[in-house]
Design a protein around this nucleic acid. Structure first.
Length: 289
DNA sequence: AACCAGGGTGATG
DNA sequence: CATCACCATGGT
């Protein structure tokens, strides 16, 4: 995918984008730090940087408050623009159900989020809904992060900051029983008991076991952190929606064509099932039928 | 192995 | 107004 940049008075035009949809990417449950604005653009922050971005045409992005240098060095990687999703999609689409899920949202991409931020977000996400997760994460950044410029955005608090606090001091976040999980994660990361920087070089099962040493991190949250925070595409987080998908559509597991990119397959299937459950023709009540 | 609490909010009836 | 579900986990 060859990108073309064109600086404008009020931002940066990026042409040549493929397999990309802002709402599909930012509203498919992988990211909780971007929100839609009434005009269809999105604003939020990641990795200590703020961004407002829109997609005036399918192959064109407009980044309001950034320059080419910042976009090339940070946002292009964040939005995984160096990855060819058309090749991945054609491999996955050998399976008929996946083909339908991909056609439903062909612009999904797996963001390359910061590992620590993703870990915290998915600790917060447990037994929770996306709207409230966004609110909790926002309050956490406002209360404990540093301002990013004048736009009202804040950095994600560091593990050191969080580790110095008690669960009671997180009460304003209104994250309930998850507060002590965040504190435990922060303390283990800050002391090095859990070394996030070692994860990229670690075998998957070893990395997952390490993350699960944190109280409040089970298999599901660990898989989410690894997929969305460390880009381990073979992780397939099993939430209630994916359990339904597997029970009714893949009782014997994903087809071979999807194993290599199980995490990406998961994201297409999760988004389709959650957005359009009737298309899958399964009940949304009891899973364990 | 099978419940159950923990906090809050939006959706549904 | 009541109930339920929510990208789960740890404890009983």
């Amino acid at each position: 995918m060859q990108l073309h940049f064109c600086s404008q008075p009020d931002g940066l035009l990026v042409r040549g984008v493929q397999d990309f949809s802002l709402p599909q990417i930012l509203d498919c449950g992988q990211c909780f730090t971007f929100s839609p604005l009434p005009d269809g653009s999105w604003e939020g922050s990641a990795g200590g940087k703020a961004l407002r971005i829109s997609q005036p045409k399918p192959d064109t992005l407009f980044a309001y408050n950034t320059d080419e240098q910042t976009f090339r060095s940070f946002w292009a990687n964040y939005f995984d623009l160096n990855c060819d999703y058309s090749a991945i999609k054609s491999q996955l689409a050998q399976d008929e159900t996946l083909r339908r899920a991909i056609l439903f949202a062909p612009g999904i991409r797996i963001l390359r989020q910061d590992g620590w931020e993703a870990l915290c977000c998915f600790i917060i996400s447990q037994n929770n809904n996306i709207k409230r997760i966004r609110g909790i994460v926002q309050r956490m950044c406002e209360l404990l992060g540093e301002p990013i410029g004048q736009g009202g955005f804040y950095t994600f608090p560091t593990a050191e900051t969080l580790a110095s606090l008690s669960a009671e001091q997180l009460a304003p976040l209104r994250c309930g029983f998850r507060a002590r999980y965040l504190i435990d994660a922060a303390q283990k990361v800050a002391t090095g008991a859990v070394d996030l920087s070692a994860i990229p070089e670690m075998p998957l099962d070893e990395a997952k076991a390490m993350l699960m040493k944190i109280c409040g991190v089970g298999p599901k949250v660990a898989d989410c952190a690894l997929l969305f925070g460390f880009h381990r595409l073979e992780c397939c987080p099993m939430d209630v929606w994916m359990k339904r998908v597997f029970t009714y559509l893949y009782p014997t597991g994903l087809p071979d064509c999807a194993k290599e990119f199980a995490g990406i397959a998961q994201q297409y299937l999760f988004h389709y099932a959650r957005t359009c459950p009737e298309a899958f023709a399964f009940p949304c009540k009891e899973v364990s039928a």
